[in-house]
């Protein structure tokens, strides 16, 4: 079974290398373990995360693509749908069986036809438009709703930090 997972990951890696979506790079950190990737995601233009390059770690299960990978940002993040430890909470990463928030329809959840590229594109759109109903980071969700200006400032500080430009 892991053999087919490895082949599929290799195919996805090849596709992401040959036709990369703009501002997204992903691949195994070290090919000795092909099931652990690092992805770089550029913050979408026209949003508070514009211009930032956010590193994240993707860990794939051995029965991928039957089960979804786990994704965790390795830089500091302040976002309603990202836990303070960097774990990403979006419906595409949830297996069909579990529903931690109790509001997602199964149509949005993981299925084997999803791919790394689709996950990363969903994360980009999540950066642009947070879903403040699912509170992975309640403080961020509250600030996003009530004090957008302050939220943008924090986002800008994080963007500079990821680029290596001191505040």
């Amino acid at each position: 079974m892991s053999g087919s997972a490895l082949r599929r990951l290799m195919a996805e890696y090849k596709q992401l290398t040959l036709n990369p979506p703009e501002g997204i790079i992903a691949g195994p950190i070290n090919e000795e373990n092909f099931f652990e990737w690092e992805a770089l995601i550029t913050g979408p233009d026209g949003t508070c995360f514009e211009g930032g390059v956010f590193p994240a770690k993707l860990v794939f299960p051995s029965d991928y693509p039957l089960s979804p990978p786990k994704m965790q940002f390795t830089c500091e993040m302040f976002h309603p749908n990202i836990y303070t430890d960097g774990k990403v909470c979006i419906s595409i990463l949830h297996a069909a069986g579990d529903d931690p928030m109790g509001y997602e329809s199964s149509a949005e959840r993981w299925s084997p036809v999803q791919s790394v590229e689709k996950i990363l594109l969903s994360v980009v759109s999540m950066l642009a438009e947070p879903n403040d109903e699912s509170g992975a980071n309640v403080d961020a969700a509250k600030m996003w709703r009530e004090n957008r200006e302050e939220f943008n400032k924090i986002a800008q500080r994080i963007v500079r930090k990821t680029l290596g430009i001191p505040t």
């Binding site: 550029t42 211009g51 390059v53 963007v159 290596g164 430009i165």
Partner: peptide, 10 residues
């Protein structure tokens, strides 16, 4: 990618 993003930002 990082360098390009930096330059653009600066």
């Amino acid at each position: 990618l990082l360098l390009a993003a930096r330059k653009k930002y600066l």
